[in-house]
Amino acid sequence: MKSVRQNKLAAILFILPASLLFFTIIIMPIFMSGYYSFLGWDGINQPTFIGIGNYIELFTSQVAGFPKSLLNALILAFLSVFIQLPLSLGLALLLSRGVKGEKFFVAVFFMPVLISTVVIGQLWLKIYNPEYGIVNVALNSLGLEKYTRTWLGEQDTALIAVFIPIIWQYVGYHMLLMYAGIKSIPTEIREAAKVEGATEGQIDRYIIIPMLKPIIRVCVIFAVTGSLKAFDLIYVLTRGGPAKATEVPSTLMVSMIFDRNRYGFGSAIAIMIIALCFFFALAIKRAFGTEED
């Protein structure tokens, strides 16, 4: 058996395809992005080494708009953590109290997660359509004409209009994670608390939620890093417009690289996205404390 396990040729054959792919499509590109981020390069002319020039421009140039895009991503992260997650938690708690049609509700709540963001984006484009969209039609029929707007086209409403579908889509995802977590808590604990006279609300507040902390931590990490990476829905709904009102780092990166041929600057944004994701993941882990590990 030992000689079979230590078969070197077999080990190489089995791991080779994965490591080859992983190296050429993930590891190497990350380092290439890191290198490009120090270049002034338009993809056509010879690149020039400009040190941290791109990073300085990233944080100081208002025209390039990175600070604004980062702020938007952070607002999204904030809304995800303080609106999306509490909503998910509330639904998970309600569902796990044992309601009729539990499975049905779980299935329905999870559905938006499965549907392509392009489809969801196109649907919301129609929902927000200024002339025929459901939002404005509903406002008109309620006699609230003065509140109708070009939701995605106006500076002050575009950002929130884009965030609503993003937050809505993933409520079900977090709900399911939390729901599965609650279900794995032994029912005896809940029953014992009931016998002692605790109400449902008290059980949730003092028993379930504290026991759910590791899962809530995962959800917070996903919500924050997901917000930093957000791309699809914003790209479909506004492409970062109007006038950069809804720009986030990913959309800015793509438009810098592929519309404006700023390869070096775009790569600097890519590196910042990776760095920020790692930073926030670690910071959140730290903030939640390590006592439960």
Partner: peptide, 23 residues
Amino acid sequence: VNNIIMLGLTIPIHAAILPVYLI
């Protein structure tokens, strides 16, 4: 090798788009 591959879980794929395009 296992650790490196697991690191891949946290790397946002968008960040590799330009090099992948060039390759």
